[in-house]
Design a protein around this nucleic acid. Sequence first.
DNA 1: TATAAAAGTTAGACTAGTCTAACAAATATA
DNA 2: TATATTTGTTAGACTAGTCTAACTTTTATA
Lengths: 226, 226
Amino acid sequence: MLSHTEENYLKALLKLSFQNEEKPEAGTNEMAAYLGVKPATATDMLKKLKEKELVTYKKYGKILLTELGRAKGIAILRKHRLWETFLYEKLDFSWDEVHEVAEQLEHIQSPKLVNKLEEFLDFPEFDPHGDPIPRANGELPTVDKVLLTDVKAGESCQVVAVKDTSTVFLQYLEKLQVTIGTLVKVMEVVDFDGSMNIQIASSDPRNVSMKFAESLFVKKKTSVTV
Amino acid sequence: MLSHTEENYLKALLKLSFQNEEKPEAGTNEMAAYLGVKPATATDMLKKLKEKELVTYKKYGKILLTELGRAKGIAILRKHRLWETFLYEKLDFSWDEVHEVAEQLEHIQSPKLVNKLEEFLDFPEFDPHGDPIPRANGELPTVDKVLLTDVKAGESCQVVAVKDTSTVFLQYLEKLQVTIGTLVKVMEVVDFDGSMNIQIASSDPRNVSMKFAESLFVKKKTSVTV
DNA sequence: TATAAAAGTTAGACTAGTCTAACAAATATA
DNA sequence: TATATTTGTTAGACTAGTCTAACTTTTATA
Ligand SMILES: [Mn+2]
Ligand SMILES: [Mn+2]
Ligand SMILES: [Mn+2]
Ligand SMILES: [Mn+2]
């Protein structure tokens, strides 16, 4: 049985491993920063997780999840994203409110609960932010996605996920009526600052910053021209 | 902000106050036994709760919730019972499985979650065991109930709650097809051992022990004779 | 390559929650 | 009322998780 704290370390390591795709290892300071603790604290915990064979750790070395540690991490991420979906779909939470509560709910221990919840939600593949929900067997649904910055002028695409899940960004998207599934057409890319003129659904085109375009994942639409 | 542990002490004190109705106070040993800790541990925590003005406590004296402590306790009980109802109604848990998970869920901090959950469940008044669910304002729905032992031969009644929520009792009730709302007619009371011959719904009469009858709350049906 | 900077570790301290063992107060009983 | 029993408290210790401050190792850079 893992404590909330241990679980948070495992999930953090998993998330960090997703970030640096090629190199799924993390450093002590990186982990500490992610979790909001001091490096000394992370060192202690990493030693403990090593004892439990959940991470590989050597003094001054990089940290990696073991198979077991990864499985535990995936299980927590699965709960997190299922709960977010529940809050969003069933309890009418907005997509900027779900994360904080799911951060607590992900630690509830009950295999039956997780699986019944998944069934109740009709086996969703993605959470409200477009992130894949791990299956009971640990597999992650995939979807090919690129950043909006990779879409060229004239191309169309569909929003599939947000890269930045901060409240301020999510609320801005809401104001712009951008949500998962929204169609976006890139009208023009401004060389000067990387900003874009985009048409959201069928509204009037508007300019968005490069920072914006770097925070949104989309799927390119094969243009419907002959 | 209260810790899980502090919350458990407050809920325990509240439940104990319901048990000894006239005297809503509890002793240190009583609390410790209820929570599965040693008396020394309870003493420490009670001092801490007194500091926070959640209980009245004096060395060697009885313990009582303050208004504030009671309100906190009620809020936790509310969450506990709403979650039990959710698990039972929406996720298909049986009534002997819900308590353990609700024991964890009751500590999730999110006022919005509680209220949305209540709304999602259509403002239930009673949990799967027939216990009243506190309202957002702290009020408890009431229902007049008596123990099955108080029902005389020839009288009919309807099951409204279980006094004993142990798995073994709940599963026995399930086997007997007794649930909240089930109609029961007392055919005969055996003076010798207090056991009863009862008819459950329209099945064949069967004998149940006094221990059984002491564990079930019912509401008397005014007989339909003229 | 020598040195400076960054990254990581260790030692020691603190809090929350728990325990055991010894003790003290309150209550029941002879 | 005197004594025994029950009830509750105190002191001291332990673990988990955190911190600060000092130190060490690794990496970057002049
Ligand atoms: Mn999240
Ligand atoms: Mn968490
Ligand atoms: Mn319960
Ligand atoms: Mn609890």
